[in-house]
Every structure is written in C-alpha cells, then in structure tokens.
Design a protein around this nucleic acid. Structure first.
Lengths: 230, 230
DNA sequence: GATAACCGTCACGCAATCGTCACATCAAGG
DNA sequence: CCTTGATGTGACGATTGCGTGACGGTTATC
C-alpha cells in the first residue's frame, strides 16, 4: 500500500487538529502523508521527501503561507510538486495572489473531504504533463508553466494571471471544447460565483494579446457550447 | 425545462418555511425540487426519486441529520447522491463529524443564496465528471462530441448547435427510425412545444450541409414514420 | 496618496441561428 | 393520369449568442 509509487502528500498547518484530520482522511483515501508545522519544516520536508502534492495553509507562524509558496517554487523539489493553498479567506485578492505566487490550486474553508480528495487527485493528474517543466505547445504558441512565459513565433507576450491560466487550460487539451462553466471551474476555481459572461471577456482579452503580433486566431468559438484551442 | 436531465435536489428540513424558501430559490436556479420533512420521508424520497443532490438539515425530529446521513449513505440511491449538510452550528466538531459520516459538503447558516447555488452546482459537477464521449462514426461521417467537430471525408463541416445535436442523435443509433416527436424530445428537450414540421426543416438544413462536399444522402426518410441514419 | 495594472460587470450592436409559413414536390392508391 | 396527404425547401421576422468598448472597484507599487 504505502510503497514509493503511492503519491506523497505534505500537509503544512500549524494546528495539530487540522494535521490529524487531514492526515486521517488522506490516508483513508490511499495517500502517503507527511506533515510540517511551519514554513521551515515544510522547506526541509520538501527537500528531503519530495512530495507530489503540498497542502499549504495560508496562516502560518513566522513565514506566511504565501511566502512559503514562493520559496518552495524556487526550489527544484518544490517546482515538481503541486501546491494547493488552503485558506479560510475567500477574498478574490487572496486567491489571485496565491496563484500568482505559483500555487497550482486553491481551496477555501470550509471544504468537504470529497472536494479535498478530488482536488489532490486532480492536481496529481495534472502534475505529470505540465508541472515538471513541460512547456505546452499549440501551433506557434508556447506556454512555459515554470517561468510563466508565453511566446508566439518567438515574440514574448504579456498576459495577466487569469489570462495565463485560461490559456494554460485551453492548451492543455487542444481541440477540446470547454464550456464556460468548466473554464470557471478550472481557471477561477470551484465554489466561485462569477457571471459566465466574464469568460467571454477574458477570452476576448486573451485573443487580443495573441493576435497583437499578427497570425491566425488560435481560439475557436463553438456557438452554444464554449471555446476550444486550435 | 423540468425534464429528467434537470438535476433533482431533495431538501430535507422540518420547517415548512425553510422548505419553501430553499425550494423557491433552487427552482429559480433551474433545478427540480423535492422535499421531505423528516428522516423517514427523506429515505423514502431518495429511494423513490433518486435525487442528485440532498440538502440535509442538521436538526431534524426523531432521527438527527447525522443519522439520516449515515443511513442514506448505506443505500444505493443515497451513495449516488451528493449530500450537503446544512447547519446553524459552526463548530469545527460538527463539520468534522458530518464529513466523517459521509456528507460530501457542508454549509453553515447564515449563508447567501448565491453560495448555496454555487455549492449545489459544484457538487453536481463533481458528481458527474465530464464524460469524454467517444467519437461517433457512420459511413464517412465522423462526429466528435468532445471537440464538437463533424467531418466528412476529412472535410470539416460547420453545423449549428441544433443540427449538431440532431446529427448526434441520429448517429448514436444508426438505422433506428426516429419519429419527429422522439427527435423533438431528444434534441430540443422534453417539455418544448414546437411544430413537428420544424424537424423537417432542420433535417433539410443538415442534409444540405452533409451534401455540400458531395457524397450520398446519409439520412433516410421513412414516409409516415420519421427519419433514420445510414 | 497617486498611478498603473488587472479584474468583473454591464450595455450595445452585429451576426448566426431559430421556428414558422407558404408553396413546390413527391409518393402511393385509385 | 389524378388526387391526396406527406415531405422538401426558400424566405422571413424574431430571437439568441457572442464580441467588445466602457466603467467602477481593488490591489500592487512607488
């Protein structure tokens, strides 16, 4: 059961009760579990054990979760892991800042165990193709998840955080038609209540940037359904 | 609107006012709604109607919400549903106990309608992950539900949403003769009042597109009965 | 505290698509 | 050949979906 192929989840939280609860549920779901009480322990554990997923609490003593995230993403082992920020604060700003710092996902308290497990699994799946420095490429567009850099025909394009994640989602499965709802899930996060038309606006902004250096429109609008890449 | 594809939400609460309020909001959000006043009614309703999401109040007469949750998760129909516990108590212990018992999510009073709807939707999405439909193929015509792409002999064909769904229905069961009424049900939706002749028009438009690149007419008209593929 | 970047929402306008009708055409029986 | 009911189809007004500029609000940065 707990062999090296079993995904390792590192839980970083300063509350012992949280560590116990999360650990219990994750073990029950078949994961290996490591724990850390603060940022320093977390950095050490990441370097030593190389976890696949890191559950990182927002509120930590000494270093904030945000700062820990930044430092983790600066280490080789940290870049190979998916970081899920856990927060009691639901404000948009926190989420954006978390994702900008390099977190791969975000979950807001209170969350369900089913949701947590689903998130961990989803990020594990996503880990393989993208997170290990794998640059996405569709046509003449390249997206580097590590450096957050997008180029078209060598030209570097500047994208906002949301548009970057939007493009990343579209490029991850070229051709697949995403409904606006699915994109809200994938790009904005679950349990976020946002007008679906907002997706249209961001697609428009993304298109504008992608077309700024000329070239064809790489995003296909499927009337009545959603959007797709390629 | 209220066809079988519309998700069914079962509300379990002993206060009539709560039932009415929640029911009103959920219906306004486009869900079908069923109600139950206590645990016994809930168990019956779940077995009979097989809801997709269950909103389960914590405080119930006779059986507690917790116990109802446990019993629900012991039934086949209950396991297929997402259970959201609704509680006025915000203590951590309650949440943990609720989730340990098998609830999929948890929402604490007072909550906003927007949050409630968002939770219900989020749990629905988790319940039915986007099934990657297999590409349909009849003769030289291919239809990919995933990419919403229709090709004939490699040529990409452009179809409107309705014609796409119409072709999908026909291709799903090649040879089967669909009556106009059945097609209205399948393609347009169950409780839609539309002239059956409209089907003829759309079949005509579909034929026109399918024949635009040459080839035989793949749709067979069965006089007095309806249409069939192949 | 001022500026710039970015976000989510709204309103407007255009184009695609829809449903219906009217008329043409067809199939089958007499 | 004629009749009759069913089907094909072009035209048209109405609706809907989508693109997009504008706007106010928030945050980061200096």
């Amino acid at each position: 059961m707990a062999d090296a192929d079993t995904p390792l989840v590192l839980i970083v939280d300063d509350e012992a009760a949280q560590l116990a609860l999360l650990g219990y549920n994750l073990k029950a779901a078949g994961f290996r579990v490591a724990t850390a009480k603060d940022g320093d322990e977390a950095l050490l554990a990441v370097a030593e054990q190389g976890p696949d997923v890191i559950l990182l609490d927002w509120m930590l003593p000494r270093l904030s979760g945000l700062e820990v995230c930044r430092q983790l993403k600066a280490t080789p082992a940290g870049r190979d892991a998916a970081i899920i920020m856990v927060s009691a604060r639901s404000e948009e700003t926190d989420r954006v800042r978390g994702l900008e710092t390099g977190a791969d996902d975000y979950i807001v308290k209170p969350y369900s165990v089913a949701e947590l497990i689903a998130r961990v699994r989803a990020n594990l799946r996503r880990l393989r193709p993208t997170s290990s420095g794998q640059t996405l490429e569709v046509g003449d567009i390249r997206l580097d998840p590590d450096t957050h850099r997008v180029t078209r025909q060598g030209q570097v394009l500047h994208l906002g955080p949301t548009e970057f994640r939007l493009l990343g989602a579209l490029m991850e499965r070229p051709g697949k038609v995403w409904t606006r709802e699915a994109l809200l899930d994938r790009v904005w996060g679950r349990d976020i209540y946002i007008d679906t038309r907002t997706v249209d606006v961001h697609v428009g902004r993304l298109r504008k940037t992608l077309l700024s250096q000329g070239g064809e429109d790489p995003i296909r609008t499927v009337r009545g359904a959603g959007y797709a890449m390629g």
